[in-house]
Amino acid sequence: MDTVTTLVLGFISIVVVNNLVLTKFLGICPYLGVSGRIDMAFGMGLAVTFVVTLSGTLTWLIDHLILMGTPFEVTRYVCFIMVIAGAVQLVEMYLRKFFPSLYDSFGIFLPLITTNCAILGLCLFINLWGIDNLAEAVVLSFGAGIGFTMAICIMAGIRENLNLANVPENLQGAPITLITAGLLSLAFMGFAGMIR
């Protein structure tokens, strides 16, 4: 397979087939927290995409240029989380200084992102899958962000309609959201096995 095909397939696979939220359970907390309104969900999705692309690329570089093959490999997790925390801080400062309007729209989500499992999860999965070229790592990171945005927006759309539905009292809020997510994940299983 040539590089372009690999990249395109990798992208599709991370967006729909191995969607981080629905098949790997990463990023469930913000998924439950902010999927109430579609505009907020979209803002969160964009912020995550931005940070995940940046930190996925950075951690890949650090892993391959510095850590691999040295005894420092054991500190991989510490390095990853520090890179993510740093990237979030940098993005926040940069946005506040140069794009205040953008900062207003998704700045509030940025501090939350450090503890978003999707980001660290993706960095770990890139390491686990043994991705060995930079282009693929970048595409996968970006794809993961898009996948997250897609999942959270679908959910927000459903939840806006759920407000009008007659849900049993005890299932209101988080429980019904989880059950909906379960059905969504069943639907996404249809994509499984399409690639790889």
Binding site: F25, N170, A174, L178, I179, A181, G182, L183, M189
Partner: peptide
């Protein structure tokens, strides 16, 4: 087998949360 899949996880947890709500009420 579906219970071992992601879908099963979401639905079981959703149901359990509902149950906990019921009990505490």
């Amino acid at each position: 087998a579906a219970m071992a899949m992601p879908a099963g996880a979401f639905i079981t947890l959703g149901m359990l949360l509902g149950l906990v709500n019921l009990i505490s009420k």
